[in-house]
Structure formats: C-alpha cells, structure tokens
Design a protein around this nucleic acid. Structure first.
Ligand SMILES: Cc1cn([C@H]2C[C@H](O)[C@@H](COP(=O)(O)OP(=O)(O)OP(=O)(O)O)O2)c(=O)[nH]c1=O
Ligand SMILES: [Mg+2]
Length: 655
DNA sequence: GGGTGACTCCTGG
DNA sequence: TTCCACCAGGAGTCACCC
C-alpha cells in the first residue's frame, strides 16, 4: 500500500464504486451532513454481499467501456484540425440558437417527499421524526431522515445504519393516488392542459393564465402552491423557466416548499447552465455521467469546451442533444399525452433465493394471478409475454414469447412463463416477473380516439419502430435540420453524415402518424387548441412535437375527452401508482456491436459486449465444468478485449 | 430494405 | 424486525422474414 488514506474503505474500493453503491438518487435535495462519511458507511455495509459483487462487476464493465470510447476518441481526433471542427460545431450551435423560444412560461411542480408527507397526514406521531417509507427498500424518506443520508431506493438495513433512530412506515399506495388526484386538480386550474409526469409532479404552461389574471409567474406559482397546501396540507416546490427541462431543474433549487424562477433571457440561461453538473440534466444518469466525465465533461459548460470531440463522435454521443442542452433550447410544449397511453403492464416479486422447480413455479403462479387481476381490472390484453428473472448473483435476464391472439388470462400467463423458464434450469433466482406488451385497450371501443381500431383491432401501441428509425442517428431532439452547406463541409470529416436528410421534411407528417396512427383526430385537436403564439410557428410546432414525444415522452394520459391521468380504479396497497416517467431523452451512448458464439453453450450471441459477457457469466453460473470455465475466460478475453467496430448502421448509411 | 420479435441497457419516480 | 423494490418507457442491436 503506497498511499495512506484517512479512510480504509476508500483505499480499497475505487471512487467510482463507492459512488455507485451510494445509489442512484444521491446528490438530491435534503443534504446529508457529510456525504463522504455517508458513502463510507454504505460501502462498509455493502461489502462482501452478492449485491456488492455485482455492482463491482458492473463498475468494471463500465470502466472497460470507457477505455474503448477513449480509444475511439483518440482515433477520431488523430490528424484532424480541431479548429476546423470547432468552426463546424459553432455553426451548428449558431443554427440551433436561432430556434430559441422564450415566449412561454413553463412551470414544473413537484410534491415534497410525497409518500412521506402523505404518511404524515395520517399519522401525526411521525411529526418531526426521521422515518423511511417502505420495508426492505425505501420508496422515500422524510426530510429529517434525509439529513442522515437516507434516500429513495435505499435498503432499510443501511438506512438504519445511517440513522439509528429511523422509523419504518409501510406504503399505502392507494392513499398516494388519492392525494395525487386532489393535488393535480388544483394544478389543473392553472393549466387545464397540464402534463402529469408522475403521480407527484406536473408541467404547466401558465402563459395565458398569468396574462388573463394580471399576475407575474412567481405570484401565480406562489398562489398555486399555497392553495394546494390549503387543500391537502402537502407542500410542493416549483421551477419557472422557458422550457420543461429548465423548469424541472429549477424545481429542485429551492426544495422543499420553495420555488425558483430562471429569468427568461439567453444570458441568464447560459450562465445558469454553465456550472451545472451534467448529472442534473434529465436523461443523464450514472452511466452517462461517467461516460461524459471521461471525455472531460462534468458541467454543461464543458460541452462547449469539448464541442469538437462531441461533434466528431456523433455515433457515441448525441450531438444535438448535448448542444441543445448546453444552450438550454429544449421543448416548451405542455400538453397531455395523446391516447395510446400504456405500453406494458407487469408484475414482479423478490423473495429469498430459490432453486426448486416446484417452488419457483409457485411464485410464478402468484405473479400470474396478480397480473391477471391487474389486467382485468384495468382492461388490458396483450400479444407478448415477457418473463424476467434475477439470479442470486443479481444478474437480470428476460425471455419473451409472442402470440397471434390476445393474452390476458392467468392460465396463459402462467403456462407461457413456465415454458420460458423451463429451458433455463438449473438456476437459483431471487426475483421472477411477468410483463405483457403489445397491448390492446379493452375499454377503447367507446373512446373517440379509437377510430377504426374497432374494426381492425390493430395493436394498441403506436409504431415506435418507425419513430426510432426516423430519429435514429440523431439520438434525441435533433430533428432540427442544419443547412446542407454545413453537411457538405462535414462530409470529409464525418462520413455517414447524411443519414437523415431525406426524412427531415417528412417530419411533421410522421409525427402525426406516430401520435395517432388511425385517425389523426387527436393531432388535429391539439393543433387547434389556442396557445400563445410562438415566434416561428412552423418550427415551433415541429420542434416541440418531436420533443414532447421523446424528450418528455409518454404518460398514461388519454385524449381530451377523458382524463385518465390516474388509474381510475381503487388501488390496493400493494399496487403502485404508475404513471410513466417523463423526461427521457433516450440513450446517449451508442455501442459498437459484434456477434459471437458462446464458448460454453455454442449459442449465437447477438448483442453488445456486456450482453455477451453476461451470457457467458450466466452459463458459468449455472454450473459449467471447470474446464469450460477456464476456456471461456480465455476465449472471452481474446475475443472481446479488442474492440472491433462492425457498425452495420454505418455501412448501411453509406450505401 | 423495411418490418418484427427477442434481448439488453439506461433512466426515472 | 427490515439485509438492495417495483413499476414503466425509450432506445439500440441482432436475426429473421418478406
Ligand atoms: C425516486 C423514487 C421515488 N419513488 C416514489 C416515492 C416518492 O415519494 C415519489 C415521488 O418521487 P420524487 O419526487 O423523486 O421524491 P419525493 O417526492 O419523495 O422527494 P422530493 O421530491 O422532495 O425530492 O415516488 C419510488 O417509489 N422509488 C424511487 O426510486
Ligand atoms: Mg417529489
């Protein structure tokens, strides 16, 4: 040991691993007194567990992945004139700048410690005490508990270590839904067209409300929060800004029970973003944070510094996504999701590890019963059944089967699940789940958006493939075309550059199709809803439409006539309030891909390196003989340590 | 070549 | 007492089909 650290854990674990173990929702509001001490306790408590080993492996895989990225970066940067590339990037950025729209007042409201504060309503004994909601893993924690570093998603036993006096409270999901409805109904008074982005948060466009009531944005939001509190005794925090993304970031600034307004001008926005950690950007999670960090990007301001690298590595990093993030030019459209709502419905359960076939089938049976009930109660059927299982090593796998008929009965679910897991034995699992996709809305026939569905029974879900295809290679909000002169300029540095050109002018139509496959009805309705005028109407609408779909995508809201923001049925306390998360800009990192045969089972593996490695690990973990193991290890090393780029998409694009 | 199914990864509440 | 949940969506890749 060359170095003597103050802290024995930190000297053994890498920094990244310690951070990883601290969980996904660190850096959140409710500051712990000492983050490194907290992390130390967490790492200490985790040490040696299977969970810990799995996290360690994931951390290692990611580190390997980063090495490849860096290698690619060096290749791409070799011999090019940085200044020239930067000029190209600058032109793209200038082009994007022209789309800035500061005309709207967008608000993001988010309830404070939602589940915890609802629990507080019903149990005043908890007042002032540090407590966590949930057993096993916490869904959230009271602000008193957060002072000790207790967080959402944290296992109870670690939380207890951080705070010895911690009290545990059970979840009451139906109660949360109930309060969610009340709160949303208050918000709706300020924008009837609001976008519910979860059971405790919503986006609003208050431009017209402020105008017609002669209020400033801050006054309006202050009043809204006051009334919400009056009617529910629950506090909320809010952000005010010209776009949804900025508003969301702002709503965290003065949490709890506060609000923050970002002045609506370019200078304020740029300086606000300049020192902001990239991790605060919705869509950039733990992995992308590390990926970006590896090329020197930690704050939004760093995006500009490294614009040349980003510009040349479109395949790895979403260029327009990052540049637009840097500029703060993102969607400002707030409208309820068009009908199309749910994409999947499922159930899964964790238990103490099981190997016995009969016992596992019993668990599967319970899941099937539960899922059937849920589907029945909410009126769904589907064509694809996906089995999910987690080994006692914490590796997760899925197996799927599709039908040409609608599945909803328990018996079908169970038999399919059984059929899917049977070839996997022997194995030891700690979780099993079923999920049904390609949904059909059994309650749809009466709804206006359903159109011809009634006669042809097409798939309920839209055509995500088409959408993906359309925007592929542009990653996120990158449908904005730049002029062709720029393209030509880039052609020599950036082959395969044109892949989306021919699509650009079809965009508007494509989007309408995506939103409402059958009739167009909702799209038309949305289009005619009077909204404050935007400076560049055509661009505004196309920009925002795409954005609404992908930057802030989907929630289970129905069309204008019915308002199904919330599950309409009484919810048992075991069922969670589900509303699709909004704010997913998609994957930023794209992976190079190879195919290979598994050295153990011989099966052709068609996936990326991680998939291959995990498959091999899987084969190993289910009891392959020692010889095979060694062989596999060496084969694995030989085959996958070098990064062969067989980018099919690129070849296609060039043809 | 485009559509589809199976699978994995990433993110967020 | 709780020993790392459960729900959901987007995206990307492969093989396979026509
Ligand atoms: C983050 C997270 C939230 N939830 C639930 C519980 C939360 O109360 C609810 C809302 O999520 P959040 O709004 O992320 O968290 P919060 O409202 O508890 O705290 P705050 O907004 O003040 O930071 O969603 C989970 O079940 N699992 C999770 O991992
Ligand atoms: Mg909240």
């Amino acid at each position: 040991m060359a170095n003597h650290h103050v802290n024995p854990v930190a000297s053994q674990d890498t920094e990244t691993l310690v951070k990883r173990l601290a969980g996904p929702s660190t850096g959140k509001a409710g500051l712990a007194k000492d983050q490194t001490e907290t992390n130390r306790i967490i790492a200490e408590a985790s040490k040696g567990s299977k969970f810990y080993e799995n996290e360690k492996k994931k951390d290692k895989d990611l580190t390997g992945r980063i090495e490849k990225i860096l290698k690619q970066r060096d290749d791409v940067l070799r011999g090019v004139d940085i200044k020239t590339v930067e000029q190209s990037a600058d032109r793209l950025i200038a082009e994007l700048e022209s789309y800035r729209d500061l005309s709207q007042i967008i608000v993001h409201v988010d309830m404070d410690a939602f589940y915890a504060n609802v629990e507080l309503l019903d149990n005043s004994d908890l007042e002032g005490k540090p407590f966590g909601v949930g057993h096993g893993v916490l869904t959230t924690a009271s602000y008193e508990a957060r002072k000790y570093g207790v967080r959402s998603g944290m296992p109870g036993f670690i939380a207890k270590k951080l705070c010895a006096d911690l009290v545990f409270v059970k979840n009451h999901f139906s109660r949360y839904m109930e309060m969610s409805k009340v709160v949303m109904s208050v918000f709706k008074r300020y924008d009837p067209n609001l976008l519910a982005a979860g059971c405790d948060e919503a986006y609003l466009n208050i431009t017209t409300y402020c105008e017609s009531h002669g209020l400033t944005a801050a006054e309006c939001v202050q009043e809204m929060r006051r009334i919400a509190f009056q009617e529910t005794k629950l506090s909320a925090s809010a952000g005010i800004a010209p776009t949804k993304m900025l508003a969301k970031i702002c709503s965290d600034k003065n949490k709890p029970n506060g609000q923050f307004e970002l002045p609506s001008n370019k200078e304020s926005i740029l300086s606000f973003l300049h020192d902001l950690s990239i991790r605060k950007i919705p869509g950039i999670g733990r992995v992308n944070e590390r990926l970006l960090e590896s090329i020197g990007i930690q704050t939004c301001g760093d995006i500009f510094i490294h614009r040349a690298t980003i510009f040349l590595m479109e395949k790895q990093f979403g260029r327009q996504y990052l540049f637009r993030t840097y500029l703060g030019i993102t969607s400002n459209v707030v409208e309820p999701m068009a009908r199309g709502g749910r994409k999947s419905i499922g159930a899964e359960r964790t238990f103490s590890s099981l190997s016995d076939k009969g016992k596992i089938f019993n668990k599967l049976d319970e899941i099937a019963v539960e899922l059937e009930k849920d589907m029945e109660e909410n009126g769904w059927a589907g064509r694809t059944v996906t089995l999910k299982f987690k080994l006692d090593t914490y590796q997760v796998f899925t197996r799927a089967k599709s039908f040409d008929r609608w599945i909803s009965r328990k018996e079908d679910l169970y038999t399919t699940g059984k059929e899917l897991i049977l070839p996997e034995f022997p194995l030891t699992i700690r979780l099993i789940g079923l999920r049904v996709t390609k949904l059909k809305d059994l309650r749809a026939p009466s709804e206006p958006t359903n159109g011809i569905k009634r006669f042809f029974e097409p798939l309920q879900s839209g055509q995500p493939r088409k959408k993906a295809k359309l925007e592929q290679g542009e990653t996120d909000m990158n449908f904005i075309g730049y002029d062709t002169a720029l393209d030509d300029d880039l052609e020599d540095v950036m082959p395969g550059f044109h892949e989306n050109d021919e699509n650009d002018h079809h965009l508007d139509q494509e989007i309408v199709e995506t939103l409402v496959p059958e009739t167009n009805l909702i799209a038309r309705q949305c289009a005619t809803i009077p909204r404050p005028p935007a400076p560049t109407p055509s661009i505004h609408s196309s920009l925002m439409k795409v954005d609404a779909k992908q930057h802030l995508a989907s929630s289970s809201i129905s069309g204008p006539s019915s308002s199904r923001t919330i599950k309409p049925h009484s919810l048992s306390d075991t069922a969670r309030p589900t509303m699709s998360p909004a704010g997913d800009p998609g994957q930023i990192l794209k992976t190079g891909v190879e195919t290979h045969a598994c050295p153990i089972c011989g099966k052709t593996l068609r996936t990326d390196n991680q998939g291959i490695n995990s498959h091999i690990d899987f084969c190993l973990s289910r009891g392959a003989i020692r010889e095979a193991r060694d062989e596999a290890r060496t084969a694995k090393k030989a085959t996958f340590s070098g990064f062969k780029l067989t980018d099919k998409g690129k070849e296609k694009g060039r043809k």
